[in-house]
Simulated scan of single mutants.
Amino acid sequence: MELIADILMISGTLAVALYCMVLARRLSRFTDLEKGVGGAIAVLSAQVDDMTKTLTKAQKTAAGSAGRLGSLTERAEDVSRRMELLIASMHDLPEGPAPVETSRQPEAEEQSEQETFFLSQRGRVEAAE
């Protein structure tokens, strides 16, 4: 009876040793850096680092764009105010008689008259500001 018990004990020990070897192999494959979960974790870690760098660059670009957009908006508002003043000053101009077409004036005279008219209007707008 003792011999049967010893044989069963040895066979059980061999079975447990074989089971431990199988588990050790599976565990080494599981933690392998190239094929297992360890490799997947290493790849994901590298991807997270890349995404962090990309996100930082995108945030810097967005901040720069927001600054430029803010300055352009301020500039547009300033131009809008000036345009409103110009339009308001145009309403204050007296309406003259309809122009009678006479002989054709040289272009140089027309241009100088237009510049004079514009400069006179500009003086009014600047005075209004």
Score class of each variant (00 low, 15 high):
Phe117Cys: 00
Val22Ile: 03
Ala76Ile: 00
Ser89Phe: 01
Leu8Val: 14
Gln121Leu: 03
Gly123Met: 13
Ala108His: 12
Ser112Glu: 08
Met21Gln: 05
Val79Leu: 14
Pro106Glu: 03
Ile10Glu: 15
Gly36Val: 02
Pro99Thr: 03
Arg75Ser: 15
Lys53Val: 07
Pro97Ala: 06
Ile87Gln: 07
Lys53Ser: 09
Glu113Ser: 07
Ser112Tyr: 00
Ser89Lys: 09
Leu3Val: 13
Phe30Thr: 04
Lys35Gln: 08
Glu113Asp: 06
Val125Asn: 00
Ala76Cys: 07
Glu126Trp: 10
Val79Asp: 13
Ile4Arg: 09
Thr56Val: 14
Ala40Ser: 13
Met1Ser: 13
Val43Trp: 08
Gln59Glu: 15
Lys60Pro: 00
Arg25Ile: 09
Gln105Arg: 10
Arg25Thr: 04
Ile87Phe: 04
His91Pro: 01
Gly64Thr: 08
Val125Met: 05
Ala88Gln: 05
Lys35Gly: 12
Leu23Lys: 12
Glu110Ser: 13
Gly36Tyr: 11
Leu69Gln: 09
Pro97Gln: 06
Ser28Ala: 12
Met1Ile: 11
Arg124Trp: 10
Ala62Asp: 05
Leu3Gln: 13
Asp78Trp: 00
Thr31Asp: 11
Gly38Met: 04
Glu84Trp: 01
Ala40Thr: 11
Val79Tyr: 02
Thr31Lys: 15
Arg68Tyr: 14
Glu95Ala: 10
Ser112Val: 01
Val37Gly: 05
Lys57Met: 07
Ile87Ser: 03
Val43Thr: 11
His91Ile: 11
Leu3Ser: 11
Gln114Ser: 11
Ile41Arg: 10
Ser80Lys: 02
Ala63Ile: 14
Leu23Arg: 08
Ala62Met: 14
Glu129Leu: 15
Gly96Thr: 08
Asp78Leu: 02
Leu33Ile: 00
Glu126Gln: 12
Phe30His: 15
Ala66Asn: 01
Phe117Ser: 06
Leu119Gln: 01
Val79Trp: 02
Glu110Thr: 10
Glu77Asp: 13
Val79Asn: 12
Ala127Arg: 13
Ile87Asn: 04
Leu93Thr: 00
Gly36Leu: 09
Asp92Ser: 07
Ser11Phe: 06
Met21Glu: 11
Lys60Glu: 13
Glu2Pro: 03
Ala66Ser: 07
Thr13Ala: 11
Gly64Cys: 06
Glu84Ala: 12
Ser65Pro: 00
Glu113Arg: 06
Pro106Trp: 02
Val79Glu: 13
Val37Leu: 15
Asp50Ile: 14
Leu27Gln: 11
Pro106Cys: 14
Phe30Met: 07
Ile4Gln: 06
Ala128Trp: 12
Gly39Cys: 12
Arg81Glu: 04
Arg25Gln: 07
Glu34Thr: 04
Gly36His: 09
Ala88Glu: 04
Gly96Phe: 00
Leu72Asn: 08
Ser80Asn: 02
Pro97Arg: 10
Leu3Asn: 10
Arg75Trp: 04
Glu101Leu: 15
Glu77Cys: 06
Arg68Gly: 12
Arg75Asp: 15
Met90Gly: 07
Ala108Leu: 12
Glu74Gly: 11
Glu110Val: 14
Pro97Trp: 00
Gly96Ile: 00
Gly38Lys: 06
Gly38Gln: 10
Ala42Asp: 09
Gly12Asp: 13
Glu107Thr: 14
Pro106Asn: 12
Ile10Asn: 11
Val43Ile: 14
Ala58Met: 03
Ala98Pro: 03
Pro97Ile: 01
Glu95Val: 13
Ile87Lys: 08
